[in-house]
Design a protein around this nucleic acid. Structure first.
Lengths: 258, 258
DNA sequence: CAGCTCACTTGATTTAGATCAAGTCTGATC
DNA sequence: GATCAGACTTGATCTAAATCAAGTGAGCTG
């Protein structure tokens, strides 16, 4: 049985339209996520050079950390299956969810700046990942042009994504924030070849609330509202997008739902 | 007359404590911002290599763009004096202020990802800058280890800063957001050797409001509130920090103002 | 220097979301 | 399959900030 499919399952009320996750592989060159992950723009020869330095850890269990805030920076990480949240320590001692990461995403890039991770990364479900030691990656960059150009690109992409997230949170209305959140998940799942119209959220309401800077009650109520409007079908963590256009419209903040 | 000092002046009610901006220079190696700008961690020899590729444009007039969203990406920019805001086009056609940038800051890094700038950068006051053509920078990276390692660091720092900004906006109370905003400006000005306890804001209230996702009225009222509590002195755009500890406490969201 | 514009401030009212308070449902364990 | 804990939902108030509505004041132009 394919472990990815397991994490990707939806409730019994759901029908059809399911897509299989790309096959995993012990090598980048054979990995289905190759085109969205670290080696996105590398040619075959360079992808082969990447393989030997990659460390594929055993699956991370739910709640376990890929790395902790403050820990010494040594590697960046790519998600192969499952999902991860990143957490920042709030000034009052609590934690805030800074991001959710799915297969193909690269994590830990913030560590490059100060040689330690400013965030913690915690698995939301059993999660497979690749560790890429940073020193070794720098080493390969000396001789390999493609790799040298790739790292700034990955970082720049992460920067754009971080700014997009700020825009997402900046949406005044809770409705627009939730809609944008769901649309973003769908888009990223599609990019990573996971089912995008129907999926199971790996995170709890309280984590969504933290991420969107809302309360858990508002998240719950707003999801119910989007369901009443027949834009999505919500049943616990199982989401089905019924009307992608209206969802996009809601994300833009327009109250119009044609 | 030193042009930097001109932009840095404060109203006539202010006294003492003023600091001179570091001297500008036609070269990185002679630039007072060397340690906070692109060549932060480079040694002298490598900084000399950087000099010939840098393009120092004529001062940008208020309201003029360093680059426009959508424009083809060719260079990253460093601010030498003055200040710049970055703008994103909101889905509804309006613009949102994404950031304020002061001397020593590096801009345009988001362009690396997709070969075009996703944001516009507009001068808030007469602003001097350095343009660093990206191709040329990549070229230098081939042979210069320090430069090769520097770009990912700069990008990672920008990523951390972007995430910090998200945290800043995430503060629920307007009071905490404004306090954090002022504290952040003071900190960055200090880093760039500009007066940090007393300064003139280069941006309008409406731009602060956009950046912090508040209304202009709330910004105005909250600044008045911080003034009533004798934490800062506000007179139009002139700011004097009277009690840095209370400001930091307010930024943390604590209502305690000891 | 008068008049004008536009940034900014201040006040009154409204409202979206937070908070407080019960619930219900689901999935794990025995 | 019964029990239980914790995730989730829903309802009733409360409140911080948005909105609506006048102001004031500083800087420019003629």
């Amino acid at each position: 049985m394919c472990p990815v499919e397991q994490y990707d399952k939806v409730g019994s009320h759901s029908t059809g339209n399911r897509r299989r996750a790309p096959a995993e592989s012990a090598t980048c060159s054979g990995c289905g996520l190759r085109r969205v992950c670290l080696p996105a723009d590398l040619d075959v020869a360079e992808t082969y050079r990447l393989d030997p330095i990659i460390r594929r850890g055993r699956p991370l269990r739910t709640g376990r950390a890929l790395f902790h805030a403050g820990q010494r920076f040594e590697a960046i990480y790519a998600i192969r299956s499952g999902s991860v949240k990143t957490l920042a320590l709030a000034p009052d001692g609590g934690t805030t969810v800074c991001g959710f990461h799915i297969p193909g995403d690269v994590l830990g890039l913030e560590g490059i700046a100060h040689n330690s991770y400013p965030l913690s990364a915690v698995a939301l479900e059993p999660t497979r990942y690749c560790g890429i030691p940073y020193r070794a990656l720098q080493g390969l960059s000396v001789t390999h042009r493609g790799l040298r150009d790739e790292l700034p690109k990955i970082l720049s992409r992460a920067l754009v994504h971080s700014q997009d997230r700020t825009q997402l949170i900046s949406a005044k209305r809770a409705r627009a924030r939730l809609a944008a959140f769901l649309a973003d998940i769908a888009r990223r799942r599609q990019r990573s070849r996971l089912s995008s119209m129907e999926f199971r959220l790996p995170m709890m309401r309280v984590e969504i609330a933290s991420y969107l800077h809302l309360t858990i009650e508002t998240v719950s109520r707003t999801l119910s509202e989007l369901q009443e409007e027949a834009i999505v079908n919500v049943r616990g963590r199982d989401i089905r997008i019924l009307d992608a256009d209206s969802l996009a419209a809601a994300a833009r903040g327009s109250s119009d739902d044609s």
